[in-house]
Design a binder for these strands. Structure first.
Lengths: 165, 165
DNA sequence: CTACGGTCGATGACATGTCAACAAACCAAC
DNA sequence: GTTGGTTTGTTGACATGTCATCGACCGTAG
């Protein structure tokens, strides 16, 4: 019974624009990051999140949650980064299962020298192309969408197959 | 000389929000697509672009350009989709190097039955959460960014290592 | 204490994406 | 028409991401 509500012209423009921007921005930022700093975007994200903590150390699961990565993916990626000397793993004192990811001096060096260029690229290709009002709107709108997606309770009305108490 | 212009609070909010939305939206859309239609996002994109042409056929390179994929990636992906009977390859009449990607009946069937659910998901998780003004703003802003990135000429002032010519 | 269900992180098998190299075919200049 | 440089699509090697599974460990209920 449901005649699909397709996207009208404006909605379509927004959706296509979003996807295209997503792709192009990614390619360009990754390209510059590799060229200028020898890091991939995932590398940078790991290092960046780590460096935001005072000690440069985070529980693996905590880091995974922040990054919205699976523990498995993070574990694999850390192994590679460990090979390159960017991070180390230490045992967790209060939970013997746990593992703590630690930024090495080389790792900190790597983010710190990559960061200015990366921020500049983000500005050049995105932020500085927007009006202040657009920046605010983008912040507002993305957070609204994120809050919905992050909270399974709010995840809203999708035709349910069946009710369960 | 260049004290890095870090992102201020609002800019940071927008940038983080964007990346978080990007990730969560992707996960959720991919999840629903797989569950409801047995297709990955890349699968859907290929089929969708093909189905937008009258004949459901496109030159491989043309398709790759539209999708912003490398020919290599597309070629690999098509081989897998071909295995599953979603597309076929045909020889190109006017260019013997060329290869034409053709939507099979099963392929068309797959997109057509996946599309309504997918559009609904896009609405539920993004479009319908925005005001009409926000939809317009998003369309406007993304296209501005895309135009810059797509046109190497406009790609603007990055500190050049040296002048040529 | 110990038994049990859950969490943590690592791992291997596999799916997917990237990159460089290649053969074939095109095309423009001679 | 032949040469030389370019474009096209495929391929294999490799990097990365996903998924299921596992052993180790945690916490709690009995």
């Amino acid at each position: 019974m449901d005649a699909t509500r397709w996207l009208d012209e404006r909605e379509d423009r927004a959706w296509r624009g979003y996807r295209r921007m997503r792709r192009l921005l990614d390619l360009e930022l990754a390209r510059e990051l590799t060229q200028d700093a020898g890091l991939s975007e995932p590398d940078y994200d790991v290092l960046s999140d780590l460096s935001e903590t005072p000690e440069g150390r985070l529980r693996l699961s905590e880091l995974a949650d922040r990054m919205l990565w699976s523990r498995s993916r993070l574990s694999h990626h850390l192994s590679r980064m460990q090979q390159r000397g960017l991070v180390t793993r230490e045992e967790c004192a209060d939970d013997a299962r746990g593992s703590i990811v630690v930024l090495t001096p080389a790792g900190r060096q790597a983010v710190e020298s990559a960061a200015p260029g990366h921020v500049a690229a983000v500005r050049r290709h995105l932020i500085d192309l927007l009006t202040p009002a657009e920046v605010d709107a983008l912040g507002e709108l993305t957070h609204r969408v994120v809050d919905r997606l992050a909270d399974p309770g709010l995840r809203a009305t999708r035709p349910q197959p069946a009710a369960e108490v």
